[in-house]
Design a binder for these strands. Structure first.
Length: 452
DNA sequence: CGTACATGAGCACAAACAAA
DNA sequence: TTTGTTTGTGCTCATGTACG
């Protein structure tokens, strides 16, 4: 039987959409696509296929039924099924995509519409030789129609699709595509402003004040969740999405230990476990806050924010908004969630922690490059001061500098954070001299860590 | 929810430097 | 001058976050 369960379901859906005001021409095009799909299907109709049908077309496999991404999802699955992947394998790929899946699906929908308009078929996509020509024409077609961000996304998505279809890389990404995209990408690049971040103390003082409310049992569960979430972000410098999918292990909470187990999606990716310890100051102790929150008992303890398909607790959106609320209440407005991470890291820098310690803690893999772009913005003014100072007092000798010690030392102290690049360089040199030194273990005990 | 915007890792390339 | 090596920089793309 060639009419697969999923296909017939989609057919129904399509006619439904057609009635909802689809223009005639595109309806016709859909038919060519559908027709081609059946043609492609037929030679593959083996006994294997029978098994696939039941497992790949059950209801919950369609994430975007009746939504924007529907045709994209359809296209992707058609292509990959025809490539010989099982439904389960495809689902595996989709699961890995996390946040990206939504975007890929929507973006592929645009491509599916374009391809249908070109009277293209799935079969043609499968046998396409020089994929970059298709991509290039597609990009050119989109240029007058869509925003820069949309076209960049479209280009990324379509090359991902071709990659998954095992087309050679040099037929997907080459100079033609690069040049076509250049203008768009340049326009989309953010202007690097100098931004002054808020001080962590501002947030901590606010939370500290809230602790009285907490102790008097006047905070509701919602508030406790938000503050706990914020504190976890401050202490662990995990990203929002990472905290949101985290599992809290509270077996040793009475000894003042909570383990946060999660996954990082940004590289270096993989499982991460961070331990929260009880802090001396109980008003801003994350353990105390989490404890009070759990005592409210509205959530299942081991899966605090986790969302699976059935049971939704706090989505990333909700978490993000909650934390922003806390920031706003603390008087920190107009900053995004990631600024917590930056504020935390900047705070440790101000306190003269060594760069290497900081980056081991924050999980950056190439510290100097990351910092160069993101965490030195607060110091631009200080640098300006230094330069101006040099201009005003060109001929100071050592004793005169000492006379001006208060000014100089304050500048020096603030500027000490600027030494990170040199410290890193020293670290690299040491590594070469002592080749047996293990990179991962060595950072903690290495003498560079003692630089203050 | 769909889309726009932002971030960060890794890569490729080029500048700078060193050695032949 | 040519060739080899190290260091620095910009670009790309996957993915996180914000916005309307």
């Amino acid at each position: 039987m060639q009419g697969r369960v999923g296909a017939s379901k989609r057919d129904n859906n399509c006619t439904g959409m057609g009635r909802a005001g689809m223009v005639d021409s595109s309806n016709a095009n859909r038919n060519t696509l559908e027709g081609a799909r059946r043609l492609v299907k037929r030679p593959q109709g083996r006994s294997m296929d029978e098994e696939e049908q039941s497992e790949t077309t059950s209801m919950e496999d369609w994430d975007f039924l009746g939504r924007r991404g529907e045709k994209g999802e359809q296209l992707l699955k058609e292509c990959l099924l025809n490539k010989g992947l099982t439904g389960q394998s495809i689902q595996g790929i989709i699961d890995v995509w996390h946040e990206s899946w939504k975007r890929h699906a929507c973006s592929l929908t645009i491509f599916a519409e374009y391809w249908a308009q070109q009277s293209g078929t799935v079969l043609q996509l499968l046998t396409l030789e020089q994929s970059y020509l298709t991509i290039a024409n597609y990009i050119t077609y989109l240029k007058p129609l869509e925003s820069d961000a949309c076209i960049i996304q479209a280009s990324n998505t379509i090359s991902t699709l071709f990659e998954l279809m095992d087309k050679p890389m040099n037929s997907i990404k080459n100079k033609v595509i690069e040049y076509l995209m250049k203008q768009l990408v340049n326009r989309a690049t953010k202007v690097r402003n100098e931004i002054r971040y808020w001080k962590l103390s501002q947030l901590m003082q606010y939370i500290s004040k809230q602790a009285t409310l907490r102790d008097e049992n006047k905070s509701n569960s919602n508030q406790l969740t938000k503050v706990s979430l914020t504190l976890i972000m401050v202490y662990t410098v995990l990203r929002m999405a990472e905290v949101q999918m985290a599992e809290l292990r509270i077996g040793y909470i009475n000894q003042g230990d909570i383990v946060i187990a999660t996954m990082t999606m940004k590289k270096p990716r993989g499982p991460v476990e961070k331990t929260l310890k009880a802090a001396q100051n109980r008003t801003i102790c994350s353990i105390r806050w989490i404890q009070s929150w759990l005592e409210k008992g509205e959530l299942r303890k081991e899966q605090v924010w986790r969302i699976n398909r059935k049971e939704k607790v706090w989505s990333t959106d909700k978490c993000s908004k909650g934390v922003k609320r806390v920031l706003a209440n603390a008087g920190i407005e107009g900053y995004n969630i990631t600024s917590i991470r930056k504020a935390s890291i900047s705070e440790t820098m101000d306190k003269n922690m060594t760069q290497i310690q900081i980056f081991r803690w924050s999980g950056h893999s190439d510290a100097s490059a990351t910092v160069r772009v993101n965490y030195d913005k607060n110091y631009k003014d200080i640098i300006r001061n230094i330069l101006e100072y040099a201009g005003k007092q060109p001929n100071l000798n050592e004793s005169e500098i000492n006379n001006n010690y208060t000014l100089v030392s304050s500048i020096r102290r603030d500027a000490s954070s600027l030494n990170y690049v040199q410290i890193n360089r020293e670290a690299r040199i040491s590594e070469r001299i002592v080749p047996q030194w293990d990179r991962r273990e060595g950072y903690a005990s290495h003498p560079v860590d003692n630089v203050s």
